[in-house]
Computed example of a mutant assay.
Amino acid sequence: MDEQAIAAYRAAVRAGKYAPRAIAAALGLTPQEAARIARTLLDLRLLHPVPGDRETLAPASPDSAAADLVGPAEQRIRELQQSVSSTRNSLLSLLPVYFESRRSRNRMEAFDVITNISVLEVMIEDFGARCQSQALTVQPGGPRPPHLLEGARRRTLERLARGIRVEHLYQHTVRNDPASTAYIREVTAAGAEVRTTDQLIDRMIIYDREIVFLPEQGELDRRPGAIVVREPTLVAFLCKLYDQQWAQGTVFEPDAEDGTAITDDVQRSIIKLMAQGYKDEMVARRLGMSVRTCRRHIAEIMEDLDATSRFQAGVNVALSGALDEAVGRAPRGEAQRAAAGAGEGET
């Protein structure tokens, strides 16, 4: 529909019919343009032949044209939606049979391994949509990519709007990431709770404390899938593990942030991991930060300890007692061995 077609339709409605010659004269159109517009209006169901006189075209109202043009497609969509809903309900009605039969067959088979990523994404989305009370997540590895945060924002806000309790547990390094901070600011304002800690064991998603998604392990030749845990005893154990990590986390409120304590916590963790013999790359990976950021923290630690080498830093840490705090008040012999480990890294 261009401006000429709209003007021609307006003229046809006023005249009660589409007369090509009269419309061409009134609008300054050529016969070919008037014929083209007539075909366009016929295709859009805005013109129709008069019964008994197919040479005469009468205008139709836009609502009747819309019903005629898209009505069949809308009917097919409704039928497809009904079919999808019916199929889903029929299959989900078999869940009690499935779980009962699995338990009867083998109590040890308490989980499913999902290797197809597309199927996994649909399952996570579906269980999240049917969540009734709680959605708990553990997200290690530092800041998440912005495109993943966009999808997470939509899902989290939708769950919060339904009254679902949402808790996110991240590593401290997300506090320095603008995209993560913007996401956390928005979802906490809507009611979500977010905490951070120095280290996390692995990714975990828990819905209603009844089902848990864990990452698949040991796959090197393909993208890892997930393990879906439903067995009540295993789920209860994993929920207790989550609760312990949550209790040790620090509340993250982006607009009321004082980074001093967090920076101290990160640096204590670096000292602890260096004392255990980890190289810079592994320390950075464990704490969800870049190697460059990790080395910047190490440089600050050495400056605070007035050390010119890592060996000297290890000695100064041991003498100051900071290493005892970082490794949980280890016996003196163990603390000395840990200090030696802190001095064995790259110089």
Score class of each variant (00 low, 15 high):
V317E: 12
Q244V: 06
N176L: 15
G218N: 04
L149N: 06
L241H: 12
T293R: 12
G128L: 02
G141L: 03
S83I: 09
E344R: 05
D221S: 12
V97Y: 09
R39K: 13
E150A: 15
K279Y: 11
S64F: 15
T233G: 14
A7Q: 14
A66D: 09
R21F: 13
E210A: 13
Q132P: 07
S85C: 06
D304G: 13
R21V: 11
V84A: 08
A26C: 04
A339C: 07
R102A: 07
L136I: 03
P178A: 15
L44G: 07
A26Y: 08
P215Q: 03
Q134F: 09
V138E: 06
A318T: 14
L120Y: 15
V229N: 05
L220D: 09
V266Y: 09
E216R: 00
E121P: 10
A326S: 14
Y9S: 04
M302G: 07
R329C: 13
L287H: 12
E74N: 08
V235Y: 07
L238A: 02
I298N: 02
V317T: 13
V113D: 10
L47R: 01
L42R: 12
V84P: 01
Q276V: 00
L149F: 11
Q139C: 09
S101D: 10
A322D: 10
T156E: 09
Q276Y: 15
G314S: 06
I205N: 11
Q217E: 07
T263A: 08
R292F: 09
P59N: 01
T137E: 11
V187T: 07
E257S: 08
P51M: 05
I201R: 15
V212P: 04
R162Q: 13
S118Q: 15
R165E: 10
R295W: 04
L305W: 14
E334Q: 08
L57D: 05
L273F: 13
G259W: 06
L94R: 02
L46K: 00
D63G: 01
L92V: 02
T197G: 08
V228K: 06
E346G: 10
E253K: 04
F213I: 03
G218V: 01
S320T: 10
D208A: 13
L80A: 14
Q134G: 11
V119E: 15
M1S: 10
T115R: 10
S90T: 05
I205D: 09
I37H: 02
M108D: 12
F213P: 03
D258W: 10
S320M: 11
T87A: 15
E3K: 04
S86I: 07
V70T: 03
I201E: 15
R144S: 14
D304P: 00
E109H: 09
P178K: 08
V251W: 03
D208F: 04
L69D: 00
V50T: 13
G345V: 02
R54Q: 15
